[in-house]
Write a protein that binds this DNA or RNA. Sequence first.
RNA 1: CGGGAUGUAGCGUAGCCUGGUUAGCGCGCUGCACUGGGGGUGCAGAGGUCGGGAGUUCAAAUCUCCCCAUCCCGACCA
Length: 572
Amino acid sequence: MRWTNTFIPTMKESPAEAEIVSHKLLLRAGLVRKLTGGLYTFLPAGLRALKKVEQIVREEMDRAGALEVLMPALQPPDIWEKSGRLESAQDVLFHVKDRSKKDWVLGPTHEEVITTLVAGELNSYKQLPVNFYQIQTKFRDEIRPRFGLMRAKEFIMKDAYSFDIEDESSNASYKRMYDAYGRIFARCGLRAFPVEADTGVMGGAHSHEFMVPAETGENEVVYSESGDYAANIEKATSQGPLKITPQESCSAAEKFETPNVKTIDDLTTRFDVLPEQQIKTLVYIADGKFVLLLLRGDDLLEEAKLGSFLKCALFRAATDIEIYELLGAYPGSLGAVDINKDIRILADNVLKGASGMVTGANDDGFHLKNVDIKRDIHIDDWCDLRKVKTGELCLKTGEPLKIQRAIEVGHVFKLGTKYSEALGAKVLDERGKNVPCIMGCYGIGVTRTLQAVIEQCFDENGINWPTSVAPYQVCVTALDVDEDSEVMKLASRIYDELGAKGVDVILDDRPVRPGIKFKDSELIGFPLRIGIGKRSLENGNVELKPKSDEMILCSPNETVDKALEWLEANRV
RNA sequence: CGGGAUGUAGCGUAGCCUGGUUAGCGCGCUGCACUGGGGGUGCAGAGGUCGGGAGUUCAAAUCUCCCCAUCCCGACCA
């Protein structure tokens, strides 16, 4: 491609809307343009990079034995009704109406569609295992689209669905995808690593997320230095807090006045009650019923753990007014001692055996001290609700845990039979018995992966594309664009020869000053620039300038070979 | 959904508080000249519903109200 025949609108300054470096570079390098919040147009160079990521994904999925299909984005709501997700996924579902006012949904993912397909087409265990995948546009009504392609209303995802007759082969299908994901991200030049993850609204038993470490990521990953443990913070566990919960025997609980105390911190500073000596009481509504959650004062609730324990996707914190109507007090003075109502009470494991604790008295401006959790509170269930903190010790290895922000680029789930049962994806097994398929599902955010590459690979001048996903691997920068000049003749020849060798190459034939060409090629981030100008040519030299390495000089005739050599040595 | 901030040319912004010429500047864009290996210089241009609507006023980018959009934070406070 000649630069003058394509469209790469680079910018010197970045639009104010872009906050993170990858978003700025996407815009500045002329790869995408925003239509409106969460919706982007891919421009020619951006589309090339996107297609390269897609192609890597496709090759590795094919290699892992998955079969490519393409399913509709527009879907009938009744299959969502059947799976139960019309309700549980309501927050992200886009609805549209047709001319007869019938309701449709735009697919945020395709479990329902693929399971319906399998229900209709597969009847025998002999047809299993099978894994279908597609690369398709998904629609999600995000609360807050942000960071360009990272969290968009519409995005491209690779989704795969495996169907197996029994657990063992289902695990093998899972493993095959897990391994394929490692190869995919490596080929994209990404440092991504798998972590144990919560399954969320997808349901299912077991899952891993593939994470790219980045301070701008929306997830937090808990890991041990040795790498033997890594989990999403939504799921992560530890040996417990570093400060010990008081467990000495104590006298009867006693009410005391705490005017205007609203927070854990107030109690600590004004009444000298350490946070680890307090019981924090939260009120949630899950499936329409109140639940009280007890945590130690210095702990935070991890909502995903609550959802996972209750097996409930729809829950929320109660409002102050709901809480007042329930307990007769506002947040700040809540407690679970002597509750005479039929409310389920969950307590975090850390509170086991706690005594001498302080908690709200359900009377504004009053708290209770000397609370013994076993003696004074009726706990329905003990469970893990707290968010792990940095420095706590790993259950598995005993090492201090660290926390790192990360971008989730892939997620693999063991789904079990949730969808196959709901949508009738059953086959006859060896004994002639009708059994639901055991499913797995496997997603990769393709557009997000593309941006994650940029977020991880850049310098002060622009993007540092890995050769595998760069829009063009090589930019031939001609510093004299007169078609009859020696410089341009040589540039054209090298460009043609590289193209003939299958290299993605662009010829910068713009009649602009050299500085602009150099800056642009570094901003867009072509891995290798071949600079051809009169000045170096007079000395018999052509310049090979890898984006992130020192310049190499060579003679015009060896340029193509040297470039091929460099590309080979820098294959990802 | 709650809170905060911001909307002025394609992009980045000044002006707004304290109402009053023709709304200024940088980048980009067009033309010409010079220049010609790191976003060059000069001259001449084009480009603005000052987010939208309503109001106050002799007069509104500027003050008031409503709406819209964008960005940030939060939705974990007990």
